[in-house]
Protein backbone atom coordinates (compact mmCIF):
# COMPACT_ATOMS: atom_id res chain seq x y z
CA UNK A 1 0.00 0.00 0.00
CA UNK A 2 2.75 2.43 0.81
CA UNK A 3 4.52 4.25 -1.96
CA UNK A 4 8.13 5.27 -2.18
CA UNK A 5 8.67 8.98 -1.60
CA UNK A 6 8.64 11.69 -4.29
CA UNK A 7 8.36 15.43 -4.76
CA UNK A 8 5.19 17.18 -5.87
CA UNK A 9 4.18 20.42 -7.50
CA UNK A 10 0.87 21.66 -8.78
CA UNK A 11 1.60 24.39 -11.29
CA UNK A 12 -1.08 26.97 -11.96
CA UNK A 13 -0.59 27.13 -15.72
CA UNK A 14 0.37 24.85 -18.53
CA UNK A 15 3.56 26.84 -19.12
CA UNK A 16 4.57 26.38 -15.52
CA UNK A 17 3.85 22.67 -15.84
CA UNK A 18 6.09 22.45 -18.89
CA UNK A 19 8.80 24.34 -17.03
CA UNK A 20 8.45 21.95 -14.08
CA UNK A 21 8.74 18.98 -16.38
CA UNK A 22 11.85 20.40 -17.98
CA UNK A 23 13.36 21.25 -14.62
CA UNK A 24 12.98 17.78 -13.11
CA UNK A 25 13.96 16.00 -16.31
CA UNK A 26 13.57 12.25 -16.60
CA UNK A 27 12.73 12.00 -12.89
CA UNK A 28 9.46 13.83 -13.39
CA UNK A 29 6.09 12.46 -14.29
CA UNK A 30 2.75 14.10 -14.92
CA UNK A 31 -0.24 13.14 -12.87
CA UNK A 32 -3.81 13.93 -13.90
CA UNK A 33 -6.47 11.74 -12.27
CA UNK A 34 -3.82 9.38 -10.97
CA UNK A 35 -5.94 6.32 -11.61
CA UNK A 36 -3.32 4.60 -13.70
CA UNK A 37 -0.25 6.00 -12.06
CA UNK A 38 -1.04 5.72 -8.36
CA UNK A 39 -2.01 2.03 -8.47
CA UNK A 40 1.39 1.31 -10.06
CA UNK A 41 3.21 3.43 -7.52
CA UNK A 42 1.36 1.75 -4.68
CA UNK A 43 2.63 -1.59 -5.90
CA UNK A 44 6.06 0.04 -6.12
CA UNK A 45 6.07 -0.89 -9.81
CA UNK A 46 6.57 2.67 -11.00
CA UNK A 47 9.21 4.79 -9.36
CA UNK A 48 8.86 8.51 -9.71
CA UNK A 49 11.10 11.27 -8.42
CA UNK A 50 8.74 14.15 -8.90
CA UNK A 51 5.07 14.48 -9.76
CA UNK A 52 3.71 17.44 -11.67
CA UNK A 53 -0.01 17.65 -11.07
CA UNK A 54 -1.90 18.80 -14.15
CA UNK A 55 -5.25 17.48 -12.98
CA UNK A 56 -6.76 20.89 -12.43
CA UNK A 57 -5.23 22.92 -15.24
CA UNK A 58 -8.05 24.83 -16.89
CA UNK A 59 -6.18 24.79 -20.19
CA UNK A 60 -6.51 21.00 -20.20
CA UNK A 61 -10.18 20.83 -19.34
CA UNK A 62 -13.42 21.24 -21.15
CA UNK A 63 -15.21 20.23 -24.30
CA UNK A 64 -15.61 22.54 -27.26
CA UNK A 65 -16.62 22.50 -30.87
CA UNK A 66 -13.81 21.73 -33.28
CA UNK A 67 -14.75 22.00 -36.94
CA UNK A 68 -18.04 20.28 -36.30
CA UNK A 69 -16.31 17.65 -34.23
CA UNK A 70 -15.11 18.14 -30.68
CA UNK A 71 -11.92 19.05 -28.91
CA UNK A 72 -11.76 17.56 -25.45
CA UNK A 73 -9.23 18.81 -22.92
CA UNK A 74 -6.83 16.03 -21.98
CA UNK A 75 -7.54 16.38 -18.26
CA UNK A 76 -11.29 16.16 -18.73
CA UNK A 77 -12.66 13.32 -16.62
CA UNK A 78 -14.80 10.47 -17.89
CA UNK A 79 -17.60 11.81 -15.74
CA UNK A 80 -17.42 15.22 -17.38
CA UNK A 81 -17.49 13.66 -20.83
CA UNK A 82 -20.35 11.33 -19.96
CA UNK A 83 -22.35 14.27 -18.66
CA UNK A 84 -21.80 16.40 -21.75
CA UNK A 85 -24.78 16.99 -24.01
CA UNK A 86 -22.42 17.89 -26.85
CA UNK A 87 -20.69 14.52 -26.61
CA UNK A 88 -23.96 12.69 -26.30
CA UNK A 89 -25.17 14.42 -29.41
CA UNK A 90 -22.09 14.11 -31.61
CA UNK A 91 -20.25 11.03 -30.33
CA UNK A 92 -22.57 8.53 -28.72
CA UNK A 93 -19.71 6.06 -29.19
CA UNK A 94 -17.81 7.81 -26.41
CA UNK A 95 -20.79 7.54 -24.11
CA UNK A 96 -21.20 3.86 -24.85
CA UNK A 97 -17.51 3.14 -24.43
CA UNK A 98 -16.71 5.25 -21.41
CA UNK A 99 -19.78 4.36 -19.37
CA UNK A 100 -18.38 0.94 -18.57
CA UNK A 101 -14.87 2.00 -17.67
CA UNK A 102 -13.99 0.90 -14.17
CA UNK A 103 -16.67 2.14 -11.85
CA UNK A 104 -18.30 5.39 -10.76
CA UNK A 105 -15.33 6.34 -8.64
CA UNK A 106 -12.82 5.66 -11.40
CA UNK A 107 -14.88 7.62 -13.92
CA UNK A 108 -15.05 10.51 -11.49
CA UNK A 109 -11.25 10.83 -11.45
CA UNK A 110 -9.81 9.22 -14.56
CA UNK A 111 -9.11 11.43 -17.55
CA UNK A 112 -9.21 10.78 -21.27
CA UNK A 113 -5.73 12.16 -21.76
CA UNK A 114 -4.36 10.09 -18.92
CA UNK A 115 -5.71 6.95 -20.47
CA UNK A 116 -4.28 7.72 -23.89
CA UNK A 117 -0.94 8.81 -22.49
CA UNK A 118 -0.68 5.72 -20.34
CA UNK A 119 -1.20 3.45 -23.38
CA UNK A 120 -2.37 0.52 -21.30
CA UNK A 121 -2.94 -2.32 -23.79
CA UNK A 122 -6.23 -3.21 -22.07
CA UNK A 123 -7.80 0.21 -21.70
CA UNK A 124 -10.82 1.35 -23.66
CA UNK A 125 -10.14 4.92 -24.66
CA UNK A 126 -7.41 4.04 -27.16
CA UNK A 127 -9.79 1.86 -29.17
CA UNK A 128 -12.45 4.55 -29.14
CA UNK A 129 -9.98 7.22 -30.21
CA UNK A 130 -8.75 5.04 -33.06
CA UNK A 131 -12.24 4.40 -34.35
CA UNK A 132 -12.98 8.12 -34.14
CA UNK A 133 -9.86 9.12 -36.09
CA UNK A 134 -8.84 11.35 -33.22
CA UNK A 135 -5.73 13.43 -33.15
CA UNK A 136 -3.81 14.72 -30.19
CA UNK A 137 -2.42 18.14 -29.49
CA UNK A 138 0.87 17.77 -27.64
CA UNK A 139 2.94 20.59 -26.22
CA UNK A 140 6.42 20.82 -24.78
CA UNK A 141 8.49 23.81 -23.78
CA UNK A 142 9.92 23.55 -27.28
CA UNK A 143 6.59 23.90 -29.05
CA UNK A 144 3.46 22.16 -30.15
CA UNK A 145 2.60 19.31 -32.50
CA UNK A 146 -0.45 17.30 -33.42
CA UNK A 147 -0.33 13.58 -34.00
CA UNK A 148 -2.91 11.14 -35.18
CA UNK A 149 -3.95 8.52 -32.65
CA UNK A 150 -3.49 6.04 -35.46
CA UNK A 151 0.20 5.36 -35.11
CA UNK A 152 0.49 6.91 -31.64
CA UNK A 153 0.67 3.62 -29.75
CA UNK A 154 3.89 1.67 -30.08
CA UNK A 155 3.66 -1.02 -27.42
CA UNK A 156 2.49 -1.79 -23.94
CA UNK A 157 2.63 1.53 -22.09
CA UNK A 158 4.69 2.98 -24.90
CA UNK A 159 3.51 5.75 -27.17
CA UNK A 160 4.80 8.57 -29.29
CA UNK A 161 4.44 10.96 -26.34
CA UNK A 162 7.80 12.44 -25.32
CA UNK A 163 8.65 12.69 -21.64
CA UNK A 164 8.73 16.49 -21.83
CA UNK A 165 5.34 16.76 -23.51
CA UNK A 166 1.90 17.39 -22.16
CA UNK A 167 -1.14 16.21 -24.03
CA UNK A 168 -3.36 19.25 -24.24
CA UNK A 169 -6.33 18.20 -26.24
CA UNK A 170 -7.95 15.28 -27.98
CA UNK A 171 -9.48 16.38 -31.25
CA UNK A 172 -12.18 14.32 -32.80
CA UNK A 173 -13.33 15.17 -36.31
CA UNK A 174 -16.98 14.97 -37.18
CA UNK A 175 -18.00 11.48 -38.24
CA UNK A 176 -19.51 10.98 -41.69
CA UNK A 177 -23.21 11.68 -41.92
CA UNK A 178 -25.39 8.81 -40.86
CA UNK A 179 -22.52 6.87 -39.33
CA UNK A 180 -23.45 4.16 -36.86
CA UNK A 181 -21.15 3.39 -33.97
CA UNK A 182 -20.70 0.68 -31.44
CA UNK A 183 -18.45 -0.42 -28.62
CA UNK A 184 -18.56 -3.92 -27.20
CA UNK A 185 -16.14 -5.54 -24.85
CA UNK A 186 -15.34 -8.74 -23.09
CA UNK A 187 -14.35 -7.76 -19.60
CA UNK A 188 -11.58 -9.24 -17.52
CA UNK A 189 -13.68 -10.12 -14.50
CA UNK A 190 -11.20 -9.22 -11.79
CA UNK A 191 -9.77 -5.95 -13.03
CA UNK A 192 -12.70 -4.77 -15.11
CA UNK A 193 -10.38 -3.85 -17.98
CA UNK A 194 -11.00 -5.25 -21.45
CA UNK A 195 -9.80 -8.64 -22.59
CA UNK A 196 -11.15 -7.60 -25.95
CA UNK A 197 -12.80 -4.30 -26.79
CA UNK A 198 -13.91 -3.28 -30.26
CA UNK A 199 -14.99 0.21 -31.28
CA UNK A 200 -16.57 0.73 -34.65
CA UNK A 201 -17.63 3.73 -36.71
CA UNK A 202 -19.36 2.74 -39.93
CA UNK A 203 -21.19 4.70 -42.61
CA UNK A 204 -22.87 3.57 -45.75
CA UNK A 205 -23.71 5.36 -48.89
CA UNK A 206 -25.73 3.99 -51.72
CA UNK A 207 -26.03 0.59 -50.10
CA UNK A 208 -22.32 0.03 -49.60
CA UNK A 209 -19.96 0.67 -46.76
CA UNK A 210 -18.31 3.99 -47.45
CA UNK A 211 -16.47 4.57 -44.20
CA UNK A 212 -15.39 2.18 -41.51
CA UNK A 213 -12.97 2.39 -38.62
CA UNK A 214 -12.40 -0.50 -36.24
CA UNK A 215 -10.35 0.13 -33.09
CA UNK A 216 -9.38 -2.92 -31.08
CA UNK A 217 -8.00 -3.03 -27.56
CA UNK A 218 -6.96 -5.79 -25.18
CA UNK A 219 -5.83 -8.12 -27.93
CA UNK A 220 -2.28 -7.06 -28.61
CA UNK A 221 0.44 -5.10 -26.85
CA UNK A 222 -1.32 -1.90 -27.89
CA UNK A 223 -4.62 -0.84 -29.30
CA UNK A 224 -4.71 -0.97 -33.08
CA UNK A 225 -6.89 -0.32 -36.09
CA UNK A 226 -8.04 -3.61 -37.56
CA UNK A 227 -7.19 -2.52 -41.08
CA UNK A 228 -7.86 -5.89 -42.68
CA UNK A 229 -11.35 -5.81 -41.25
CA UNK A 230 -11.83 -2.30 -42.52
CA UNK A 231 -10.58 -3.00 -46.03
CA UNK A 232 -12.69 -6.13 -46.34
CA UNK A 233 -15.77 -4.20 -45.34
CA UNK A 234 -15.18 -1.14 -47.46
CA UNK A 235 -17.35 -1.25 -50.51
CA UNK A 236 -19.22 -4.33 -49.32
CA UNK A 237 -22.95 -4.33 -48.67
CA UNK A 238 -22.29 -4.39 -44.92
CA UNK A 239 -24.55 -7.41 -44.53
CA UNK A 240 -24.05 -10.25 -42.11
CA UNK A 241 -22.00 -12.36 -44.46
CA UNK A 242 -19.67 -9.51 -45.30
CA UNK A 243 -19.32 -8.63 -41.65
CA UNK A 244 -18.54 -12.19 -40.62
CA UNK A 245 -15.96 -12.51 -43.37
CA UNK A 246 -14.34 -9.24 -42.36
CA UNK A 247 -14.38 -9.98 -38.62
CA UNK A 248 -12.30 -13.08 -39.20
CA UNK A 249 -9.39 -10.71 -39.82
CA UNK A 250 -9.74 -8.93 -36.46
CA UNK A 251 -6.38 -10.08 -35.13
CA UNK A 252 -4.53 -10.28 -38.44
CA UNK A 253 -0.89 -9.41 -38.10
CA UNK A 254 -1.07 -9.08 -34.33
CA UNK A 255 0.97 -10.84 -31.70
CA UNK A 256 -2.06 -11.80 -29.61
CA UNK A 257 -1.81 -11.54 -25.79
CA UNK A 258 -2.12 -14.54 -23.56
CA UNK A 259 -2.73 -14.58 -19.83
CA UNK A 260 -4.60 -16.53 -17.17
CA UNK A 261 -7.91 -14.95 -18.19
CA UNK A 262 -7.68 -15.45 -21.93
CA UNK A 263 -5.12 -17.52 -23.74
CA UNK A 264 -4.07 -16.74 -27.29
CA UNK A 265 -6.56 -19.01 -28.98
CA UNK A 266 -9.50 -17.77 -26.98
CA UNK A 267 -8.53 -14.14 -27.29
CA UNK A 268 -8.10 -14.45 -31.02
CA UNK A 269 -11.51 -16.05 -31.36
CA UNK A 270 -13.05 -13.35 -29.19
CA UNK A 271 -11.42 -10.62 -31.23
CA UNK A 272 -13.35 -12.01 -34.15
CA UNK A 273 -16.57 -12.56 -32.23
CA UNK A 274 -16.65 -9.12 -30.68
CA UNK A 275 -15.59 -7.44 -33.89
CA UNK A 276 -18.47 -9.11 -35.64
CA UNK A 277 -20.89 -8.07 -32.92
CA UNK A 278 -19.65 -4.54 -32.82
CA UNK A 279 -19.71 -4.09 -36.59
CA UNK A 280 -23.18 -5.67 -36.76
CA UNK A 281 -24.46 -3.24 -34.22
CA UNK A 282 -22.77 -0.20 -35.81
CA UNK A 283 -24.15 -1.23 -39.20
CA UNK A 284 -27.62 -1.58 -37.75
CA UNK A 285 -27.35 1.91 -36.30
CA UNK A 286 -26.01 3.51 -39.48
CA UNK A 287 -28.61 5.42 -41.42
Amino acid sequence: MSMAGFGYTRPATLDEALADLAKHGPDAKLIAGGHSLLPLMKMRLASVGHLVDIGRLRELKGIRDWNGGLAIGAATTYREVLGSALVRDRFPLLIEGLDDIGDIQVRNRGTLGGSLAHADPASDMPALALALDAELLLRSSGGERTVKVDGFFHGAFVSDLHPDEVMVEIRIPASPDGAGTSYVELTQPASGYSLVGVAVVLAKSGGTVSHVRVGVTGVADHAYRASAVESTLMGSDGGSAAIAAAAAHAADGQEVNSDIHADREYRTAMATAFTRRSVESAAARAT
Binding site: L38, P39, D103, V106, R109, S191
Partner: peptide, 25 residues
Protein backbone atom coordinates in the same frame (compact mmCIF):
# COMPACT_ATOMS: atom_id res chain seq x y z
CA UNK B 1 -5.17 -2.11 -6.09
CA UNK B 2 -8.01 0.43 -6.12
CA UNK B 3 -10.62 -2.28 -6.57
CA UNK B 4 -12.72 -2.66 -3.45
CA UNK B 5 -14.27 0.74 -2.80
CA UNK B 6 -14.11 0.47 1.00
CA UNK B 7 -12.27 3.80 0.98
CA UNK B 8 -14.92 5.71 -0.98
CA UNK B 9 -15.55 9.30 0.11
CA UNK B 10 -16.97 12.31 -1.68
CA UNK B 11 -14.54 14.88 -2.98
CA UNK B 12 -16.11 18.04 -4.30
CA UNK B 13 -19.42 16.26 -4.46
CA UNK B 14 -18.46 13.09 -6.28
CA UNK B 15 -17.50 9.63 -5.04
CA UNK B 16 -13.79 8.87 -5.20
CA UNK B 17 -11.60 6.07 -3.94
CA UNK B 18 -9.54 7.90 -1.35
CA UNK B 19 -6.81 5.28 -1.60
CA UNK B 20 -6.22 6.45 -5.16
CA UNK B 21 -6.02 10.17 -4.52
CA UNK B 22 -2.98 11.84 -3.05
CA UNK B 23 -3.68 14.00 -0.05
CA UNK B 24 -1.97 16.85 -1.88
CA UNK B 25 -4.38 16.39 -4.80
Amino acid sequence: TSQCGACTVHMDGVAVKSCTVLAVQ
